[in-house]
Design a protein around this nucleic acid. Structure first.
Lengths: 112, 112
DNA sequence: TTGACGTGCAACCGATGGTTGCGTTCAAGC
DNA sequence: GCTTGAACGCAACCATCGGTTGCACGTCAA
């Protein structure tokens, strides 16, 4: 229980550049290392490494077309990642609620 | 728009050790570098560094008692972080839904 | 064929997560 | 008092990672 999300997915999403890459890939419906690097403050090689990481955890998949390597978001895997993130958030939210309730109970006890 | 979440909060939460530390601090209602390291596969010094990071982004706060330095989760800041995470997830979810709808429309178009 | 574009590979650099080792402080014992 | 031990901080060190530059390899087009 607790944070059962795959650490690979977390660290893949945890990096700000990778997050923006996913954003771009989602809005543009895919892209290459070159096209992505043109919209990011990092070099093509850095983007290529990140694409390798994202590919490693299955968040994107590649299709080679001539001299281009086009990457697209794997919707199924990405949906899974989002669902897991959502689950963690729900857990944390619940804990905050519990702490809040306990704090209120103590507060009430003090007033007695 | 897009991922407007503070990168500091993301990277703080993105690290697996820090996530587990937050888990422990929430369930135990606080702890020291030593008590946390006993429940984690890393040394006290590593935990201390992470506590420094978490303190830097305001997710925890310290109280010195004798020779102990007790850390507790800052509920307000933590709630803010959770809310921001939630917002990003909502955004991504919406994008997935849009893509899904478009895909279905194309599918229908093909069938005509 | 030649040139330009897109990639991949390798070396290098700085930051970071992690370790070990040592010094310091403070509570508690004799 | 003094000493012991627990909790901490600081410093050096190592591996990994995000990022860069430089270069070599394919591939499409003139």
């Amino acid at each position: 229980m607790s944070t059962t999300i795959d650490d690979g997915l977390w660290s893949a999403i945890g990096d700000p550049t990778r997050r923006r890459m996913l954003d771009l890939l989602l809005t543009d419906g895919g892209g290459t290392a070159t096209t992505l690097s043109e919209q990011l403050p990092v070099t093509r090689q850095a983007v290529a490494k990140h694409l390798g990481v994202l590919d490693g955890v299955g968040l994107v998949h590649v299709t080679t077309a001539g001299r281009e390597r086009r990457y697209e978001v794997d919707e199924v895997q990405f949906a899974r990642a989002v669902a897991q993130l959502s689950a963690v958030i729900t857990t944390w939210d619940a804990r905050l609620q519990r702490i809040k309730r306990i704090a209120e109970r103590i507060q009430r006890g003090k007033q007695d």
